[in-house]
Design a protein around this nucleic acid. Structure first.
Lengths: 342, 342
DNA sequence: GGCGATATCCAAAGCGCTTTGAAAAGTGAG
DNA sequence: CTCACTTTTCAAAGCGCTTTGGATATCGCC
């Protein structure tokens, strides 16, 4: 069923039928009813490609996923962010498109997306320090919103980010207040912008109290369970092991806990943990009382906000760029306690 | 830049330019070179909607995600499957589209996808027992492949599945051979088809050895870490606690292990665990020697296979339906050992 | 030198929609 | 009953591509 035959069926022109369905005022209310009923009866939906061609709108948002690290697509943080975004898209009748791209082909992928007019805008996830995608997309004039920020980029762009520096600074101060002075940091990959900001927060808090930093206590890598476990085991074997560990994700925190328990220590008594908690849907931090003391900020929510921002910019290109800085809350769980005496 | 102006620029007709770029033979090789170079120079890409309208192909595969359970999209199994699928799509220049759908609106969503011609085919994930989507899609005549099967559906359809029954039967037999007779089953939601098949395998193995089944040892729910932990704690408090536990996912196995360790028991000595391991990219089962003994089958790979199957059906509607049953391997890790004497 | 076959290119139609500009129908005042 | 307006409908152009059915140029061969 298409417009043409539907119009014939109704004895009307395509114009009138189209307008009736799209809510234009210049069509008699009675006719509109007739048209809508017929459309429902025949289960008519305008062909999305034809409509897109005529309107110039794709009604589609692109997400580009680097294939480099398999993890990216599969990363639970990624999943939750995308879940939130797609809620927003659904509200506006947009769809989301995923393109996996071989390593290093980002640029041509974005160019292609633009040239093909496949999407109305894109979301950038996991920005690096000095991320080349930002100047590229600005140059391409393709609407975009970044989840996170990119240190070193001067030009304006739209972003939604958590105040990573502040939240890790607060978490570190919290541990310092409990008397901890040897605090480990198990962080994400160093070239990721968020990891750098978290480290900055950690360092700032230590510096403010005149606590020296120890490179042996600062590790960064992809935040898997195994990584958390591995690094914790190493740190515990140091001559002066940490009494507290700060980690960048719940997943690695699970590994940290595992290493602690394997060492016969008790979390929250012998050694404290604070983790960043993205409030992942399938990885809840305990039921009522959180297992881990955590800096908490919902990445699902961030996805919604970023998507709404992007859609608003597509509709109103005037109000670009927009930015939004979210503050993480510091929630106290059972994984922190006063530094052990000794 | 579009075909028309590119053709003008070259002093050729749109026909020739189009054919040159699409590799048709009836164009002089020299001209083709000229055209390709010009296309590259202007960074020309055919407008995907126009192309789709002309060809009737969307070059897009749909994935519909029920919003009911937030978990769905975020579920790591989902993520890995989709990762594998998108690898296959990328090879064939297809893109993937995600539509989140409010609970219970599946039917209208699929109808709409069909009517709008938004996609060339869809993938069904997480089939239930007697899943209504299968007859619907058959009726709609929209190409689809199911990841898993649906017991109770008679009509033919294409699927890719792991031999869940057999693999859990083998795992159970393995435990029985080690002398275990009280074996717990921590399974996925009962209305999920895979959970039912796994239970069947478990029951078949017990029955073959004349071991009575105990409902107190069979639990099913969404497979979170917390669920594994919670159920294990309960089971360990029984008068006759299990000496082995079979669980349906690595994530809940982690919870199982936590409960075991909290109880002061040692995994692999006091109590054995076998888990199903989907070989999730970010949740590896140990490095060289697996942590958990596991029935192993890569869900990433399954995604690739399902996607290839769907694409082949789109190109060749004749060879429908196809099916593919994957056998899981049983890999021995450090989580199993002989049943403790007692 | 002419003829059929082949290689190369082109004009125009068509995919299914939106939207412009105009026509037809209806309305109320004079 | 007319005229000026508003309301309602329509024909046709256009979005950017593919593809059909020719047209034109080239070639081998007798």
């Amino acid at each position: 069923m298409n417009l043409k035959t539907l119009a014939q069926e109704l004895g009307l022109s395509q114009t009138t039928v189209s307008r009736a369905l799209n809510g234009y005022p210049e069509v008699n209310e009675a006719t509109r009813q007739r048209v809508q009923q017929a459309a429902a009866r025949y289960n008519y939906r305008p062909n999305s490609r034809a409509k897109g061609l005529a309107t110039g709108r794709a009604m589609m948002i692109g997400h580009v996923i680097p294939a480099s690290t398999r993890h990216e697509m599969v990363n639970p943080v990624f999943g939750d962010f995308v879940g939130g975004a797609s809620d927003a898209y659904a509200r506006h009748n947009f769809d989301m498109m995923f393109t996996r791209v071989a390593d290093g082909n980002d640029e041509s992928t974005y160019r292609e997306l633009k040239a093909k007019r496949a999407v109305d805008g894109v979301i950038i996830q996991g920005p690096l320090v000095n991320d080349a995608r930002i100047p590229l997309l600005n140059a391409l004039d393709l609407p975009f919103v970044v989840h996170g920020r990119s240190s070193g980029i001067d030009e304006p762009y739209s972003w939604v980010d958590v105040n990573n520096k502040r939240s890790f600074q607060r978490a570190t101060e919290f541990l310092l207040d409990l008397g901890h002075t040897r605090i480990g940091l198990i962080n994400g990959l160093e070239h990721m912008d968020f990891a750098q900001r978290r480290r900055d927060g950690y360092l700032a808090a230590l510096k403010a109290r005149g606590i020296p930093t120890d490179p042996a206590l600062m590790r960064s890598n992809e935040m898997t369970e195994v990584f958390g476990h591995h690094q914790t085991r190493h740190m515990l074997q140091l001559d002066a092991p940490p009494t507290a560990i700060l980690t960048s994700s719940m997943i690695s925190a699970i590994g940290v806990r595992r290493a602690i328990e394997e060492a016969g220590l008790k979390m929250g008594r012998d050694i404290s943990i604070i983790t960043h908690d993205d409030e992942l849907s399938y990885l809840k931090n305990g039921q009522d009382v959180p297992i881990f003391t955590a800096t908490r900020s919902s990445v699902w929510k961030a996805g919604e906000i970023a998507a709404e921002m992007l859609l608003s910019q597509i509709n109103e290109p005037a109000n670009v760029p927009q930015t939004r800085l979210l503050e993480a809350e510091l929630v106290v769980g059972r994984s922190t306690g006063p530094a052990p005496q000794g």
